[in-house]
């Protein structure tokens, strides 16, 4: 049975700030208030764990308007001996992005090739990636329909009945409008979109933030769905399809980072939904997380963890391996 260590919260916040001071005095001085606020946002149960992660010299942190985690070293393949350098660039005023990027850095603790989500065997010779792919590939249609039904209810209730249908049916036209530069075609599309009521619906969705409820509930699932469905323009959180097409294990990596962020920030509503909708993946994540947690808290080595050897034979980077992991 794993145990969660708890200590004095004020002390943890101070340690968190000290860890940032070590990363750079100017970085701390310029972002002092945001860093203290960030420390308070992190769940008290995991503050000590986060402090230990931050105080490691292999993790570099910098300020950035968005969020990205970039592995600087790639390490030896199939080896969990030497930790590799990762650089997080993140906006400190957004705790979720910080926790998400920290999740990526934990996943790539021994390099991106040795990511925990893709290489560590959890049970039956399967990694988190295998379990996630298995479960997600079988259920993604149902998940998409479930989410979209909720989105439909939300939009129809907030704007008017039938608004969702107008929104979805005219989305291809809107995307072509965004892509084209030809004035005549643009005028025509703009006129059509105004006449069918899409302009008003899109404006209302934008101003009333109908998508915020879904964000609160299902970020990990929405991000996973964006690996299969093109949801650009729907205001739903996720990465581009291109981002996932380069490397199939990215979906599992993003899943790990998203659930890690929720775990660290103590967001239980997303947790409940994950348990309902993706129970096996969530269970696998929990096991993997506590493997990492136990070793970091007790200063143990990771060499005893079972690695799946055949993983990298199947999946090879198609593009430059120095890809950015954006939030």
């Amino acid at each position: 049975m794993q145990t969660i260590t708890q200590s004095n919260p004020q002390m943890d916040i101070q340690l968190f700030a000290d860890a940032f001071k070590k990363k750079g005095k100017l970085l701390y001085r310029w972002n002092r208030r945001a860093i203290h606020k960030l420390a308070r946002e992190i769940s008290p149960a995991y503050r000590d764990f986060v402090n230990r992660l931050l105080s490691n010299n292999k993790l570099l942190i910098d300020r950035y308007s968005g969020g990205e985690c970039r592995p600087i070293e790639y390490g030896e393949i199939y080896s969990l001996k030497k930790r590799c350098k990762n650089k997080i660039k993140v906006d400190f005023s957004d705790p979720r992005t910080f926790a998400h990027e920290l999740g990526h850095s934990v996943d790539f603790l021994f390099g991106e090739f040795n990511s925990f989500s893709g290489n560590i065997v959890i049970y039956d010779g399967k990694t988190l990636n295998d379990i996630f792919q298995e479960e997600f590939n079988n259920h993604h249609k149902e998940l998409y329909e479930f989410l979209m039904d909720e989105y439909r209810l939300n939009i129809d209730a907030n704007i008017h009945k039938g608004a969702y249908n107008i929104f979805i049916n005219n989305m291809p036209k809107y995307l072509t409008l965004c892509d084209t530069e030809e004035p005549k075609l643009r005028k025509k599309l703009q006129k059509e979109l105004y006449e069918c009521g899409f302009v008003e619906v899109y404006y209302q969705i934008n101003t009333r933030k109908c998508f915020k409820v879904l964000e609160q509930k299902y970020i990990p699932i929405m991000d996973a769905l964006s690996s299969v469905y093109d949801i650009t323009g729907l205001y739903l959180v996720g990465h581009d399809l291109e981002y996932y097409m380069r490397y199939s294990a990215r979906a599992a990596q993003e899943f790990f980072a998203n659930v890690f962020a929720d775990k660290i920030l103590g967001n239980h509503t997303r947790y409940d939904n994950l348990i309902k909708l993706m129970p096996r993946s969530f269970d696998a994540f929990e096991k993997l997380f506590f493997m990492i947690y136990e070793r970091i808290q007790n200063n143990k080595r990771f060499t005893d963890l079972p690695i799946k050897d055949t993983y990298l034979d199947e999946e090879v980077y198609q593009d430059n391996p120095e890809e950015e992991e954006e939030c």
Partner: peptide, 17 residues
């Protein structure tokens, strides 16, 4: 205000009737 927001969403050549 609405016109400005719509111009941001639909391009700056958008005319809000």
């Amino acid at each position: 205000k609405k016109d400005k927001a719509l111009k941001r969403l639909f391009g700056y050549d958008f005319v809000y009737p």
